[in-house]
Each structure stands twice: as C-alpha cells, then as structure tokens.
Design a protein around this nucleic acid. Structure first.
Lengths: 159, 159
DNA sequence: GCCGGTCCTTCACAGCGGCGAAACAATCGT
DNA sequence: ACGATTGTTTCGCCGCTGTGAAGGACCGGC
C-alpha cells in the first residue's frame, strides 16, 4: 500500500524490489502508469470491498510470479527460469536433478557423485570439474552453486 | 469494454480469446476477480481520465503479449507471423508442424524424422540438411531453430 | 604466526561423437 | 527446358567428457 504522490520515493524502491503494491491515488491527481502486472491503483475514496478485491488479485499474481522463480528442469535437458533457458548435457542434467530436489539445501558430494555416475565415479576430480562447468552454465540464469566446505554444495538464486 | 454483470457471456468469450478488456462495474456489484494481467475493471461512475489510464495500461500489456505470439501454419504450406509469411515445401512443412506443436520445447531428431518421412528415413544426414534449409527460410520471420545437442531441436522467436 | 595437509577451483589437453554446411546429383512440377 | 525441391557425400568444427596438474582457500597443530 503506497500513497501517491506523497510516497513517490518509496514506490520507486518497491518497484525495483519487484514486490506487488497497490497505489492509493487521491482525487484530482493522475495515477502512475506502468504495465507491470504487479502494480495496481485505486482512486480515493474507495470502499473496503474494492480495495480488497484489487489486493487479492495482486496477491494471486505475486504468487504466480514467485512460482516462476523456481527453476524448472525438463526431461529433455532444458533448465528454464524466468523466460530464459539453458540446455544441460547428460551428466550436468543428473547433477542438477539432485540439486533441485534439495533446492537451497546442502547436497553432499557423495550424493552428487552417485546421481551423476550411477555406475561408479570415473575419477577423483570429475565431480569438481563438472561443478565448475555447471556453474558457468547457470550464471546467465542468475543461479549460483555455493560451496559448503567438507559438506557439499548448495543451489540458490544469486544474491 | 465490457459491462458487468450484464455482458457476462461476452466477457467469457473475450477471456477465452485472450484479448485485453476493461470491465465496467456499477455501484453495489462485486467486481469479477481474475489474476489475468490483461483484465482490469473500474467502479462506476468513473472519470474519463481514470478509464483512459486503465485502458492505456491494458494496451501496453497487450502489446507485450502480442510479441509472444506463436506463428501460424496453414495447410497450403504458408507460415505466417506478424504480417509476414513464407512458403514451405512439403518436407519442411511437416517438420514445421511438429516444431510448432511443441513450440519452445525440445523435439527429438527421431520425432522430426518420423514426421518428415513417415515411410522411413531416406538417409543418415537428410534431417540435418533440411534443418539448415528450414533455418534459412525462417530467418526473415524472426524465428530460430536452436540445437539441443544429443536431444533434438527447439523452435522459438529470435532473441 | 607458521606450516602442512586437505579440500576445492580452475585450466589445458585429448578422444569421441554429434552436428553444420557446402557442393553435387537426382527428381519433380510447370 | 528451367527452376524448385529433395537426397547424398564429404569435410570440419565444436560440444561433451574425463585426466592430469597447478594453484588457492581453509583448518588444525605447533
């Protein structure tokens, strides 16, 4: 809930942060125009029902947007996030599967090795190399693999 | 512009067709709720400025959605997109059919081969060659066939 | 603080195979 | 006969994968 034009600076902040917001516009003032579906406005004075209706719609959209922020891995080697996508070769596809199952939680190197090479790990260094390659591939999507020393790795959105 | 609830049936049609619409809601009636960004509503009576502001935002969103429009393939070998068109010879027409069914998703080389040559694939390299030719034909429409190595191909709008 | 060891990161290289694309030949439609 | 469409051959690039090696970050002991 933002008053306009009194809280113009605050509105700008919220817009940048990507949160949903409802702008309250007093009589005689032009409403702010944006095509962002996460922004709406009401002309004051307004009834409680009208405000609640708009808030509920914004909440629905925010929920939808949030779901769009979880990476999606399809069975054909594509990893999608926010309209973009990258293709993952077989090994990295399997690694990504485990990392997404435990999104934002630590996955042990052992679990990763078993997922990537069900038949047994070829060499002692292979996993590290594939983590590096996966990292580079995820960069354009804004995803990061963090190292948790002696524990494993963790996948999350880049800060 | 749709009156509510008087034109309920018309609103339903427009929703299905995916067009942008502004719903006019008289006093004392609950507005229709939808999270579709292409729908908005105003409480009557409303000033011209307020209505115009909402219409302009909807137009902006509709324009954005249009860019995401999918190409259309007719049965005579014509592929249309955004006012332009190209003609496709039989084999490429069949290939394009599968690619459009799975627009923005991966289509395996196998599926493409079966679609292009239902009687059986003539040679080992034919598909590659036809993909190259199709690519050149699609270029003026702003469409691109991406390779997903060892998985297949994917059709999307050029970035 | 200094040191050694472990864990992790990154690069360079090589083999394999998938795919791209030109050039040519054959066939089809008008 | 001519151009458009289709199939074939051939060459080469580049992506995927694993290996070895060099270096950096972190941790404990002294």
């Amino acid at each position: 809930m933002v008053r306009w034009p009194a809280e113009e600076a605050r509105l700008a902040e919220i817009r940048i942060s990507g949160q949903a917001r409802l702008v309250l516009v007093p009589e005689g003032v032009a409403p702010p125009l944006t095509s962002d579906p996460l922004e709406d406005w009401v002309r004051l004075p307004a009834s409680d029902e009208d405000v609640r209706a708009r808030v509920r719609v914004l909440e629905d959209r925010a929920r939808g947007a949030e779901e769009a922020n979880i990476p999606e891995l399809d069975e054909n080697g594509l990893l999608r996030l926010g309209g973009q996508w990258v293709s993952l070769p077989p090994v990295e596809h399997r690694l990504m599967g485990v990392l997404l199952d435990r999104y934002r939680a630590v996955v042990s190197r052992d679990a990763l090795a078993r997922a990537g090479w069900p038949e047994g790990i070829p060499g002692r260094n292979v996993l590290d190399v594939h983590i590096v390659r996966l990292r580079r591939r995820l960069e354009p999507l804004g995803l990061v693999i963090r190292t948790v020393r002696s524990r494993g790795y963790l996948l999350e959105a880049a800060s």
